[in-house]
Design a protein around this nucleic acid. Structure first.
Lengths: 408, 408
DNA sequence: TTAGTTTGTTCACCACGCGTACAAAGTCCG
DNA sequence: CGGACTTTGTACGCGTGGTGAACAAACTAA
């Protein structure tokens, strides 16, 4: 005998769970049956059926075989289909950039690394990006109409809401340039722009630390910057320059002059050029970050010592950050962090010594896990987070429905 | 001739703006007409009328006279009625606490300052709080049924989601005590608990800096702590200990031992006891913060110098915080900040010198404006923010409607 | 006073979602 | 192997909520 479903319809519709909300449940990728979705949402089975149909029509949800029967007719299962659409993810550095097409789960379908000088100015750089993007679409034989959005990471401060760089030091000509507007001339989809460190932080958090809502990502290379995720959200500050740790003063370096004109800046002590200079003074040549990595791998004592000291300097600043933000993880990325675990060791040494036990008891300090491409994944995530939101899905489905009506 | 209202009903209901959402618009206090609300929400005038009626029935919205006619029947106007319900706001310090009843806008209707030793333990303290609360209700002659929630600020780290203090150093017996559960035995309403600094930060931001979404509040007294508002939201960190700046190392104090066992802590240099000790070494007695304020007002050069130096030490730490968080305001509160503008001057001196121009160009550093009671207002705001949310209002109205049906 | 305008209220219509009924497709047991 | 049972999937009547139009009320302007 079938159990009568649900009671009073006086409170019907209060939940207000629409197709978009249903989709949010499926976003984790787990295949689910209609019945499971019904109990999760509290909606009637008939309603779920209609919603699932709409989502299947759009392609965003796929049937993925049947589940085991529990004594009756075996239910079919449905899951989010990340392959339904694609995202264009762009990570631009000072001298080169990575342009990639990913699916909706952030998996890279195609990628190209190109030599791009960011100082050629926005038009030149972005034209090259869009041209490369068209080629990528050709190479994987995918329709450009499947593109739902573009995410771009830039090596400087960006006002994320408007997508305009704000006084970027190494990006002449980019100040206040309307990146989304320009890119949308080539691809008419949402264009989201952010600082490259923020994007890497997002990529690391979403892929490797999903249970940690308070993560501090550090990129240590030529410059030193931080991406802050608090309460699960990227924190960008008032002008989008949050995380700019390069020019924080460190006690040790009272006599070191930084390129910013101040003395004792973290970057002037622990930035990649500073480490190279330290080694040069000991007659060790390591002009590039690759050199540094090789030296560290071969166990050069001077290199290891220099990296460890850089880690201590960085750790001094991070100890303050830990007290202020109380993160549960610090992730160290960037070329300097990749050269063995020496930087990491220096950071750990100082942070665990300096901070209160309460703040460090549950604090992990780890190296970045997405060796390369954290930026790409983060750029893709930034887009999907916005484009796959309940509201966005909802309006997309409504649009499709009205189109279907007008062309029967 | 009347203009036909609205078009296709195919997209009807997509907005999903219910009574709760309507109420959010009215929350700013501005009186509005039904017609204005209709264009703002996009809902039909008839729908607005029903929603407004429901809100008026609940008392949360009041008619506030008529607006000027624009050639036809003059419209009546409606506005949020903060007097409809009350909030119990409690701000507990180490040696005394303030207990107040506020309206829904945070205006204080009645308040009492009581001598409470926080180290008497949670039961004793909270019993006194609830007893005092009952008396306050009597004194203003208001029904306790009008109470919608209780906000409590405690002088130590609190896990806000559960309302349990986490290893608070100066609150023996409070660790992991379920404050909401205990208080709810006396008043069966939502009980929200947070760190006192967080609450003060919230109060300052909501009352005096509503346009600044990135605010850093500093309380400088015996201890030194920060409340972080980023992106309009309080940031509490992984364990609720974010903002614990007291034990960050400052370069100057390499030989000062702090009570935490470490050396060079900010608190050991710039905390109120440290300032008192500096003055005592110069044969100036200022054991309490009131003494300090009097001395500063009378222009004692030693006092001013000590405060200014404390400001510089604090500024050194805040310079790092500015680089990390990129706030648009830093607000200095607490007894030390109240003793003239000397602490403020020291902070400004160092922060503006140390930080990059980009971060400080639009940065204000100001003294707290709610001389007293920022904690109370913040505690009240914390409650209203939750209790007046769209969802909360929605379910309250639904509840009222069903009660009205059952008792005709 | 009268025409015109805008607000406030009532009411029929319509779409959406719910719950029920029933067919379809399995499992389990004799 | 077939019938009893269980669970999924689909079709359909019904109630609710929101809309838009019609109309009454209240005021301005000529």
């Amino acid at each position: 005998m079938a159990i009568p479903e649900q009671g009073s319809s006086a409170i019907a519709g209060i939940g207000g769970a629409r197709s978009g909300d249903l989709f949010q449940i499926l976003l984790d990728g787990t295949p689910r049956t209609r019945a499971e979705l019904a109990v999760m949402t509290g909606l009637a089975r008939s309603t779920i059926a209609a919603r699932v149909d709409a989502l299947m029509d759009s392609g965003l949800v796929n049937a993925v075989g049947e589940a085991a029967s529990s004594g009756g007719r075996p239910p079919s299962r449905f899951a989010f289909n990340p392959a339904a659409r694609v995202v264009l993810a762009v990570d631009l550095g000072a001298r080169h950039g990575v342009i990639a097409i990913t699916d909706l789960a952030g998996s890279i379908l195609a990628r190209v690394r190109a030599d791009i000088s960011i100082d050629s100015g926005p038009q030149v750089v972005l034209d090259l990006v869009t041209k490369t993007a068209h080629q990528l679409f050709d190479s994987i034989g995918r329709n450009e109409l499947d593109l739902v959005g573009i995410g771009i990471g830039l090596p400087g401060p960006v006002e994320h809401t408007s997508g305009r760089p704000a006084n970027p030091p190494i990006m002449p000509g980019w100040h206040d340039f309307d990146v989304p507007e320009y890119v949308r001339r080539s691809f008419d989809v949402p264009v989201l722009v952010d600082n490259d460190v923020n994007i890497m932080a997002l990529g690391e958090q979403r892929t490797h630390w999903p249970t940690h809502d308070n993560l501090l990502f550090i990129k240590a290379a030529t410059g030193i910057g931080a991406g802050i995720i608090s309460n699960g959200q990227l924190q960008r500050g008032a002008l989008g320059t949050a995380g700019d740790l390069g020019h924080v003063r460190v006690a040790r370096g009272t006599d070191v002059i930084c390129r910013c004109g101040n003395i004792g800046c973290l970057e002037a002590l622990a930035g990649a050029p500073a480490i190279a200079a330290t080694l040069a003074a000991q007659n060790i040549s390591a002009p590039t970050s690759e050199d540094l990595i090789v030296l560290a791998e071969h166990g050069s004592p001077e290199t290891i010592a220099a990296l460890r000291q850089a880690g201590r300097d960085l750790g001094e600043v991070l100890a303050t950050c830990v007290s202020l933000l109380n993160p549960s993880v610090i992730v160290l990325g960037g070329s300097t962090a990749t050269a063995g675990d020496h930087l990491l060791a220096g950071v750990r040494e100082v942070v665990y010594n300096r901070s209160l036990p309460l703040a460090t008891a549950h604090l992990s300090i780890a190296g970045a896990r997405s060796a390369d491409g954290a930026g790409i994944v983060g750029a893709s995530m930034m887009v999907t987070q916005e484009v796959l939101s309940a509201e966005a899905i909802e309006s997309m489905l409504v649009l499709r429905a009205s189109l279907a009506l007008s062309t029967p």
